[in-house]
């Protein structure tokens, strides 16, 4: 047992600088979105999936592609459309006339990083095709389960502006996403820098940066293992549970977060702690992750919807009310 902890610590000492390097690489490519980059990395470290909401053209695809490059993994992108079928995502069997047998044609989910672009444009049955692979990391085709390669992460996007011809994600699907991340326009300086780089007015082009992977799949799994075994005090766990339960008891929400939210809160708090180089989880880590973990798991009450109060504002208010742990 002691050996395993020592191994873990030595691994951590090796991997943490690499993690910082990975973070810098992605931030160099995706300019002006450090918080989004951090949250996507947290989801990766915690072994979860991310739902990103933001208008088109903010670098969502670039983010996933860069992440895939830096972790030496495969990257696939699926544009969700109203006529997309479940088999187009998971895969299907084809009859091989020459061999006289059925051949399995694996879908785009068999990758390390899957970008499900505009996921809410596909109907519910197509969205549901992701349920199994997101939860179990496996796909059932013709009754046979096929494991997807590790690490595996789905990053789905949806457009907050257009509602015509879209299908809101069902609650079960939303609950599968570890985090919901808002991607917004970068600041003025970042946008100016981005414009200079892309338009060739600056020498600091992303191409100048190294394109070699920072992590291999095994190292990512080691990081995920470190996160999964990071100690969490009972007070902190109790705090996470209090936060989640408060959403169920609050009158401002018609639907509170489920038990998956408690687990997600602790896992993401661990990843957050690792990202800041800590060995243990603080209540601050839980608090920092509470809004991205819970914002898609709760539903505002009718009153709050009519008044136009944002879910994030309601959650922030709740965070101020729920007692933080003490002695």
């Amino acid at each position: 047992m002691t050996d395993s902890f020592e191994n873990r610590d030595s691994n951590k000492d090796e991997l943490l600088p690499l993690l910082q390097q990975l973070r810098d690489r992605i931030n160099n490519a995706v300019i002006g979105q450090p918080q989004v980059v951090d949250q996507v990395l947290i989801a990766l470290l915690a072994g979860g999936h991310v739902l990103v909401e933001g208008v088109p053209g903010l670098g969502k695809t670039l983010l996933v592609r860069t992440l895939a490059e830096t972790i030496a993994g495969n990257f696939r992108r699926v544009q969700f459309t109203p006529d997309l079928m479940p088999a187009d995502i998971t895969g299907h069997t084809l009859y091989d006339m020459n061999k006289g047998t059925f051949q399995i044609r694996k879908g785009p989910v068999f990758t390390n990083l899957l970008l499900a672009d505009e996921i809410n444009r596909a109907p519910a049955k197509t969205q549901a095709a992701l349920l199994e692979v997101m939860q179990e990391h496996q796909v059932s085709i013709e009754g046979t389960s096929h494991k997807v390669s590790q690490p595996f992460m789905v990053m789905a996007t949806q457009n907050p502006i257009e509602h015509e011809g879209t299908y809101p994600l069902p609650e079960a699907e939303l609950d599968r996403f570890l985090l919901k991340v808002f991607i917004d326009y970068p600041s003025v300086d970042d946008e100016a820098l981005l414009t200079r780089i892309i338009s060739g007015c600056s020498k600091d082009t992303p191409e100048n940066a190294s394109s070699s992977p920072v992590f291999n799949a095994q190292q990512i799994e080691q990081l995920q293992q470190i996160v999964a075994t990071m100690p969490v005090d009972n007070q902190v766990v109790a705090y996470a549970v209090r936060l989640v339960r408060a959403t169920r008891e609050s009158v401002v929400f018609s639907r509170g977060a489920g038990t998956r939210a408690c687990i997600a809160l602790i896992n993401t708090a661990r990843a957050y702690a690792l990202l800041r180089g800590a060995d243990f989880v603080l209540p601050d880590d839980v608090k920092a992750m509470a809004i991205p973990v819970m914002r898609h798991r709760v539903a505002r009450s009718v009153d709050m919807e009519i008044e136009g109060v944002d879910t994030d504002a309601l959650l922030a208010d709740l965070l101020e009310q729920v007692e933080a742990p003490r002695l």
């Binding site: 603080l282 209540p283 601050d284 608090k287 965070l319 101020e320 009310q321 729920v322 007692e323 933080a324 003490r326």
Partner: peptide, 9 residues
């Protein structure tokens, strides 16, 4: 201090 404040806050 509010009840929701952590030690860091």
């Amino acid at each position: 201090f509010h009840p929701g404040h952590t030690e860091r806050e």
